[in-house]
Amino acid sequence: MATVAVSKDQSVWGGGKSPYALSYGKLMMWFFLMSDAFTFGALLISLWTTRFSVSSWPDPNQVFKTFPLMGEADLPLVFVSLMTFILILSSVTMVLAVQAGHNMDKKGAAKWMIFTIIGGLCFLSCQAWEWTHLFHEGAWWGRNPFPNRDGSLPTTAFTNYFFTVTGFHGFHVFSGVVINCVILANILGGTYERRGHYEMIEKVGLYWHFVDLVWVFVFTCYYLL
């Protein structure tokens, strides 16, 4: 929403230039991310509305306590912490790619973008492992084997929302990885050298950070609260 800027520099809003000093592409990405925030927000708020409408809910410490290759070990929330770490790290490598782009450093931008893609793929693999593991325990859309905290029989709401929200998030991570690959190809092909700026990395960077941001909220809603 535009506010009529009562600023010292009235001419910023005077037409002929962007009042936000941003290219239209970046502006569009920001506003798209705001709309996507409402999509995820609606899903998470629906989750919370449902949680308020039932008397008890499974304990995340009991549900999410496994770790790949550790068999029956009871390691509550350790795996998801690893996933969070991976995603945050990939956000950092993305920022470094953007920074390399600012310096017109083609090799650096490519290197950090590759790390970001690897980070995204690792996250997706972890999520796939988590899903498979839960599926083998009997959880799926419409099936919830995990008892509530107070011992009562659970509704399927827990798993319904879990798979929907993490699935939607995972889909965004996947599409982000695909987009990043396309951008990587463009970097290596010299498209941005010719164009004279690496702003495209910033734009997809915004998308990638948004995906990380959503994960922060999903992590809290599902694994902590």
């Binding site: 009235q10 005077g14 009042p19 290219s23 569009m28």
Partner: peptide
């Protein structure tokens, strides 16, 4: 939204 914000001609304030 982007067009209205970014592409107003010179002198055309909001």
């Amino acid at each position: 939204i982007s067009t209205v914000l970014n592409m107003r001609t010179k002198g055309l304030s909001m």
